[in-house]
Design a protein around this nucleic acid. Structure first.
Lengths: 359, 359
DNA sequence: ACGCCTTGATAAATCGATTTATCGCCCGAG
DNA sequence: CTCGGGCGATAAATCGATTTATCAAGGCGT
């Protein structure tokens, strides 16, 4: 029922070509529109409430002004780790700014077999991939269909555009902080092996120890994971160590993992930060809600999303890219869980429902 | 570069019409394809890796198999209240099931003026609106462009399809629980006025009091909001009341609000649940992380999303809808914050990174 | 006065599907 | 022997834009 370009042309007493050129501000030599005609076209378009049909436009131009966002698992948003949600937020914000629309894809179900192919379709001009597995078939799909893509948290590969945060530095920061507070036996709970951030964080941890002349004790490096359960289990293991072997500080894989560890420690009747100092990673909002509040490495998660979109838009529009593999800086949010800040000094500044609701 | 229908037709030695009909399993009388030709078409399509261009298909059919999801604010995902994220999750899951794709829109920026119109465009077959303001222009846009839509958390309006949860019952449940534990002075922190859930919860609270023969004391009904800050402030107010006027229990607007209240109470040196029993709403995962863990009214948030999509798909495909205004049931998750369950008995069962990652 | 360039505008091709109208052909019924 | 009907398939129209090729005037220089 919506007005078409032909109807506008008819009402303005001109042709569709003129309408198209006028409304798009086309600067082609081959088609010119006089000021008078232009006025009539504007009037007619306004009168009919004309909006170009984006589907038809896409077909004609080969561009959709839609970018896809692929999240690694179906529960991306419900998962208690707000990482994906925050990335999505940054992505959304930047897409709005760049006048692109967002198509959302999550999980294996849309990516297996025929469906996988369906999604990497001509509907999107480009794709943002979040923590893609190193051997994901998505890469091949994109290559073969010539769909530009940018990966968030992926080890830089020749020719691929990636956006990462400085995990090595993050590992260093967390460990150095604990060292500066006098800790000499510091445990590290490693995140999932297949996630690209785990290793550099570990290396940062090792470097910090080495630079301070502290020994590297492999019994203090525990395979955990990015969830509550693994943190809880790992801490149980630590609590079971003989006192002489036991660490006095824990650098956890992330905030959730740290929370699990804290729970295990509390259940054992030990104190945080007196018996164990703890540092988390991601600086999620619930780092402020734990008791004591959790010191955490902050990474600019939303900026990861924003940067990825910015790069992708350049890719799509054929513009030059200064740095195809940016690494965003991290920092340390110091709270009470290491004893470096008093408990309760940093109440969460939660925003609740925002004013920016739809009109 | 992708293969077109014409190329497939050529390779199979037939026409585009035959290819289209075959691949879509068309049962029209006017076009028939013999088994032999069909085989050749399948072979050719497979050989070329042919996938129909969805843009062209959309233009021809007037259907895009894309549904839009509109969230009320830009920070929908970052906002510490995981409500929108969970809704998005349910929506996504159901869309995958129904073979639709998801276009995501958030906040005022995409909805003002010309941009608002751009988004309600022919690209989507229908729209899911989450907590739309009662007077949102989106409704008119949809009507005038004949785009079917379903609203989540909207007061039922004649002719509109809505999905709600039973907030009245939720208010009742929370209050009855506190009454059953012996509380006679129960405060209620109301959520934002303009959010449709606030009033029925209040009415449920009132009904529960009335049915137990307890007096309705307006000084115990405090305007708060769905965020941490308002919970914190409201609790401060309660703590400042003269002891005789002070409630012994608080039914908060939601979990975040409850958390804020708990923080204020702890800061005042009072005990939960001994001095104040607390009930939250939404049963978010961090209700399990607070100390003590928070009793909360559980609403089936993801199911809201799923149901909305199911209804919307029916709307889009012209199928009958049994109940255009379903109200989903709520329940009570009892934890330690009211003294009805021991602290620490319900550790969070967090899942961390899911197995269902993309291949 | 003739050709040339510029301006203004339109008809028509294109994008890649779906869908309708049409066309042989062969077979069986009358 | 002819006519109707079912089968198999194709050409062509359509969807609603963009974009290219084409064309008609009009102004200007020589």
């Amino acid at each position: 029922m919506a007005a078409t370009i032909k109807e506008v042309a008819q009402l303005a007493g001109t042709s569709g070509a003129a309408v198209s050129a006028t409304l798009n501000g086309s600067r082609s030599k081959s088609i010119r529109v006089s000021a008078k005609t232009r006025e009539r076209i504007y009037a007619a378009a306004a009168q009919l409430g004309y909006l170009p049909n984006p589907v038809a436009r896409s077909l004609a131009t080969g561009r959709s002004r839609v970018l896809g966002l692929m999240l690694p698992y179906v529960e991306a948003f419900t998962d208690h780790n707000p990482f994906c949600a925050q990335v999505a937020n940054g992505v959304m914000a930047e897409m709005v700014r760049a006048h692109y629309n967002l198509m959302l894809y999550t999980g294996a179900s849309v990516l297996n077999g025929a469906k996988a192919a369906m999604m990497v379709d001509s509907r999107v001009d480009g794709l943002v991939l979040v923590i893609p597995p190193p051997d994901s078939p998505v890469f091949l799909k994109c290559e073969s269909r010539k769909i530009p893509y940018v990966s968030i948290l992926r080890a830089p590969v020749a020719g691929a555009v990636t956006v990462n945060s400085d995990d090595f530095r993050g590992g260093q920061l967390a460990t150095e902080h604990l060292i500066s507070l006098g800790h000499r036996r510091i445990a590290h709970l490693i995140g999932d092996e297949d996630v690209v951030t785990s290793r550099p964080r570990l290396e940062g941890y090792r470097r910090a120890l080495a630079e301070s002349g502290l020994p590297l004790d492999d019994s203090l490096v525990l395979q955990a994971g990015f969830d509550w359960k693994h943190g809880y289990a790992a801490a149980k293991g630590i609590l079971a160590m003989p006192a002489s072997k036991r660490p006095t500080a824990i650098f956890a894989a992330n905030d959730l993992c740290a929370e699990g560890a804290m729970r295990a420690i509390r259940e054992a009747g030990a104190s945080i930060p007196d018996d164990f100092a703890i540092v988390g990673y991601d600086d999620t909002f619930f780092a402020t809600m734990t008791q004591p509040a959790l010191t955490s490495v902050r990474m600019p998660i939303e900026e990861l999303g924003e940067t990825a979109v910015r790069l992708l838009v350049n890719l799509v529009e054929g513009k030059a890219i200064a740095d195809p593999n940016p690494v965003l800086p991290v920092s340390l949010s110091i709270r009470a869980s290491c004893g470096a800040a008093k408990a309760g000094l940093t109440p969460p500044s939660l925003s609740g429902i925002n004013e920016d609701t739809y009109v």
